[in-house]
């Protein structure tokens, strides 16, 4: 038995999409993958597998996990992870969207981008998507205590990076 009908799921799209889009935009920053493409695949996959949603986690957490797995698959296919690891923040191309952003937004994005993969993902989930440590733990499989320690480490690194960029707190 599914905890959610297709109709209920469809009516939640308006709420889920913008939030998930923001998270995926942050997650995919610096790659050639488009958040819209990932989200389309995510929602279509979710509705096909709605019977597997058991309501233990929130619908958003479940959706985020699907989107994250799709991204990981795409990274594997395109070997983007490797490409991204070797690209320095300064080397990242400036997109049309970034031209319209304020300098502060671009600097914050680049500071997040400078973090190692696991810390960057954590910052996206905690500081941008405002998830709780429990939700993040459900998604990543890392225990809450470890997540908190990593979050402090990420914050320290962000502080150092922002100081280097000349951004005052």
């Amino acid at each position: 038995m599914s905890y959610l009908t297709k109709k209920e799921f469809e009516s939640s799209i308006d709420e889920l999409y913008p939030r998930l889009h923001r998270a995926m935009t942050a997650y995919l920053y610096g790659t050639s993958l488009e958040p819209d493409d990932i989200l389309q695949e995510t929602f279509l996959k979710a509705i096909r597998n709605l019977h597997t949603f058991q309501g233990g986690a929130s619908l958003y957490t479940w959706m985020y996990s699907i989107a994250r797995n799709i991204c990981i698959d795409q990274f594997r296919k395109l070997k983007h992870e490797k490409k991204r690891d070797f690209a320095s923040v300064e080397e990242l191309p400036i997109t049309a969207e970034e031209k319209n952003n304020t300098e502060e937004i671009n600097l914050l994005r680049k500071a997040i981008m400078s973090l190692p993969d696991d810390l960057r993902e954590l910052v996206i989930m905690k500081a941008i998507d405002e998830m709780g440590y429990r939700q993040i733990s459900d998604i990543t499989g890392v225990n809450e205590q470890t997540l908190k320690s990593r979050m402090l480490k990420a914050r320290k690194l962000l502080s150092i990076e922002l100081k280097k960029m000349g951004v005052r707190s």
Partner: peptide, 21 residues
């Protein structure tokens, strides 16, 4: 240092996606 970090949520504001939805 960490208490004075800016709000990182500002880096990715939520936007409307009506046509995509």
């Amino acid at each position: 240092d960490v208490m004075n970090l800016p709000d990182f949520a500002k880096a990715y504001p939520i936007q409307e996606h009506e046509p995509a939805i």
